Simulated assay, not measured.
Amino acid sequence: MLDTHGRKYVAPLIKSVANVFIRLHFTANTITKIAFLVGIFSGILAYFEKEILAVIILWISGLLDAVDGEVARSQKDTTAWGTLMDITFDRIVELSIIIGLGLRFPNSRMELLFLSSAIIISMTVFLTVGALSEKKGMKSFYYQAGVMERTEGFILFSLMILFNKYLSIITIIYAVLVLFTAFQRLCEAKKILDN
């Protein structure tokens, strides 16, 4: 929801950072790889009880994740390979946090497994609709908006890392919101794909 409706507010920052990378001759795919490497460290840092640093690193990776697309569009260099890398690396970053927290907090593993399952279900709907839909958006595939998008995920992951005393309850809330988003996207998909 925030990605869809709030992007206009952070677009100038994303454009500014993208222009720096363009001047330095970075390709969008290189930025995607940097965002990935930075992002997986958030899970490692969360495991080693470096909560504030983990959250800062997570958000830096999120900014770079937005910048890579801006660079690709600015240079008219969007590719299917770049899209595949971007989506795959996003999930691996999420898994690094889930695994890091799961290793550190064994009592919350069932809730973290529930969250992982919810993400798999939601992403299955999201990617299948994107593949089957003839509609295209700003991205190189049809992007279904929903209650839980990347920014909301980062907010909830940040809360999970920083307020780990309440890890189980925050994780359950996150998972329920992801499942709600999957249902929301299924309802929209029925309208799009039945025509």
Rank of each mutant, 00 (worst) to 15 (best):
T4I: 12
T32D: 11
T32Q: 11
I31H: 08
V55R: 00
V176S: 03
F180E: 06
E94A: 08
V55G: 00
M160W: 00
M160I: 03
L115G: 01
V125N: 06
M1R: 10
F154A: 14
E49T: 05
H5T: 09
G6H: 07
V178I: 15
L24C: 10
V17T: 09
L162P: 00
L113V: 11
S133I: 13
F180Q: 06
M110V: 14
V125Q: 07
S42P: 03
R7L: 14
I56P: 01
R104M: 11
F183M: 13
F26W: 06
L84V: 12
K8T: 09
M110A: 14
V129P: 04
S16V: 05
G43K: 02
E49L: 07
V17F: 04
F157H: 00
E70H: 07
G39I: 05
T30P: 02
T30W: 10
L177T: 06
G100Y: 01
M1S: 15
G6I: 10
G137D: 13
F21G: 10
L186N: 04
T128W: 09
T32H: 10
K8N: 08
V17H: 04
I120A: 15
A118M: 09
I87M: 04
F89T: 12
L45M: 14
L58G: 01
L64H: 00
A131H: 10
V93Q: 02
I92S: 04
E134G: 15
D3E: 15
M123E: 15
N107Q: 13
E49R: 06
T171F: 05
I56D: 03
E111V: 11
G137Q: 08
K8C: 07
L159V: 14
A118L: 10
L63W: 05
G102S: 15
F157Q: 02
Y47L: 01
R185T: 05
A54C: 08
Y9T: 09
L162T: 03
K191G: 11
A189N: 01
T4L: 15
R7C: 09
T128E: 10
K191E: 15
F36P: 04
R73E: 09
T88M: 08
K76Y: 11
M85F: 13
V125T: 08
V125L: 09
V129E: 09
Y174R: 00
I172R: 02
A189M: 01
I98S: 04
I119W: 05
Y47D: 01
N29P: 02
G82Y: 00
E49F: 06
M123V: 11
L177A: 13
K190C: 09
G130Y: 05
S122I: 07
V71P: 03
A18P: 01
V93K: 00
S133W: 12
D65P: 01
K15F: 11
L127F: 14
N19K: 14
G137L: 08
I170D: 02
T181R: 03
